[in-house]
Amino acid sequence: MSPKANPKAARRKSSKNATPPHRNGRLSRKIAHQPRVHDLDRGYSTLSLDDILDARDEYHVHLMRHPNVVATAIGYYRIRRGDSWPQDKRQFKGTGVRRLTNSEVRPYSWPAVLVFVQDWIAANEFGKGGDHETEEMVPKTLYLRDGRLVPVCVIEAPRDPKGAPELESIRYPLNNIGSGHPVIIRTQKREHLATIACLVGDGHKTYALTNRHVTGDVGEVIYSQLNGRDERIGGSTSLQARRVAFSELHPDWSGRGTFVNMDAGLIEIDDLNRWTAKLPDGTIPGFMFDVSAAGFSIAYRSLRARLRLGQPLDVW
């Protein structure tokens, strides 16, 4: 004879093994508050370059009025190297000083407005009981008029009292000169050194690109050392660019009152047969990176994909 079934025990056993349903119309706390990375995203990962530029354009003056802010920029949110990754079992997020030297861009970093400060001040030092007013604190989020939210990454950038170190040795080319090689400019009885960036052309002539503050006025003679001897390699031209409005370079991007210090000057080459397009390591520069509004969206996605994969970038 089979034992008599106990319906209450069966219900208890069934409810013990089942996933707890709603409690008073709400998910159980264990289910509803499961930590996930994208819960804190707030849509930041979908921000475009246009969004970040709009935010910086609208808030730059306001941010620069903070007594500790020295500069703003755009980029990716930098995460302290000691912070945990989303897949780590033990989660840790530091609150100490963030600098360029102790932080990094990770594959899940958000696009953000970067705000550089002279000194890092902890959050608990603002407001009541602190040494600084609440209004002096850099906001964590920028709110645009149309509802877009843009994150802010604060980075300490103290002034470096040290000057540029003196060069111990300078490596001059033997026969052919090109990208990465030094050139010599003599003015006011002093000698200055510069570096060639690359070769550029207008379809008729080929020029060497370097800094405008190096090439100087039109007709300035530029030298280098080939096979151990000083030799004239060309002269400076009128093809120069100094300080240019960002909107003039990129009319489709936001950037009111923003200027780019181009500092670009061209050297008209005397003898093109003495030049090479190769880099010092023997490679040839790749294609130029298109940052125009028309082509940037595709290039931008490609750039982000390569960053996620840890691939090197060839941006010229």
Rank of each mutant, 00 (worst) to 15 (best):
Y207H: 00
K8W: 13
S28D: 10
D281M: 10
P67K: 05
P86T: 08
L174A: 01
F246Y: 06
L303R: 00
S109D: 06
D252P: 02
V154C: 09
I267K: 02
G82W: 06
S247F: 09
R11Q: 13
T215F: 01
R99C: 08
A208L: 02
Q87I: 09
A157C: 12
G265R: 07
L53W: 04
G295C: 08
P182H: 06
L49E: 04
P86C: 06
G25E: 10
E231M: 10
I74Q: 13
S28P: 04
D88Y: 10
R42A: 02
Y44C: 01
N176V: 01
Y108V: 01
L266W: 10
S45F: 00
V37P: 03
Q311G: 00
G96R: 00
H66I: 08
P86G: 09
Y108C: 02
R232D: 07
I267M: 02
R11A: 13
H22Y: 13
V69L: 04
D54C: 11
D263S: 08
A123H: 01
G286D: 14
R148F: 01
S2F: 13
Y59Q: 08
D88S: 12
V218K: 14
V117P: 07
R242G: 14
V61Y: 06
L114T: 06
G265A: 11
E220W: 00
P312N: 07
E136L: 11
K4Q: 13
Q87T: 11
H132V: 05
Y76A: 02
W85G: 04
R186S: 14
S224Y: 01
G310E: 11
F296N: 00
R78A: 08
V291N: 01
S238W: 03
S254Q: 09
E136C: 07
V70M: 11
R148L: 05
P312H: 07
I184M: 05
R29F: 11
G94H: 03
V200L: 15
S84H: 12
L272A: 07
S2H: 11
R65G: 07
G295W: 03
D57P: 00
R301S: 10
N176H: 02
I184W: 03
V113A: 05
V115Y: 03
V291Q: 01
A55I: 09
A208I: 00
V244Q: 06
L47Q: 01
K30V: 14
F116Y: 15
N124W: 04
P20C: 10
V315Q: 09
R29V: 06
A294D: 14
